[in-house]
Simulated assay, not measured.
Amino acid sequence: MAIDATLPYDDDNIFAKILRGEIPNKTVYEDEHVLAFQDINPQAPQHILVIPKGKYVSWDDFSAKASDAEIGGFVRAVGHVAREAGMVEAGYRLLANIGQNAHQEVPHLHVHIFAGKPLGPMLVKG
Rank of each mutant, 00 (worst) to 15 (best):
I3P: 00
P8D: 06
Y9R: 09
D12H: 13
N13F: 05
F15M: 10
I18R: 09
I18H: 04
L19V: 04
P24S: 07
N25C: 09
K26I: 01
T27K: 15
T27A: 14
T27G: 01
V28F: 06
V28N: 02
V28P: 00
E30P: 04
E32W: 04
H33E: 05
V34F: 05
A36E: 07
F37Q: 03
F37I: 01
Q38N: 12
D39N: 10
D39F: 09
D39M: 10
P42F: 05
P45H: 09
Q46E: 08
H47Y: 07
H47M: 08
I48S: 03
L49C: 05
V50M: 14
P52N: 08
K53F: 08
G54V: 03
V57Y: 08
W59M: 14
D60T: 04
D60C: 01
D61L: 11
F62Y: 13
S67A: 07
E70Y: 02
E70A: 12
I71D: 00
G72Y: 02
G72Q: 11
G73P: 02
G73H: 08
F74E: 01
R76M: 10
R76H: 07
V81R: 05
A82G: 02
A82L: 01
R83Y: 11
R83D: 03
A85G: 02
G86N: 11
M87R: 09
V88A: 12
A90I: 00
G91S: 11
G91K: 11
G91V: 12
L94P: 07
L95S: 05
L95P: 00
Q100C: 00
Q100R: 10
H103R: 11
Q104C: 11
V106N: 13
H108V: 02
H108Q: 10
H110V: 01
V111C: 08
A115K: 15
G116L: 03
L119W: 12
P121E: 15
P121A: 15
L123T: 04
G126Y: 13
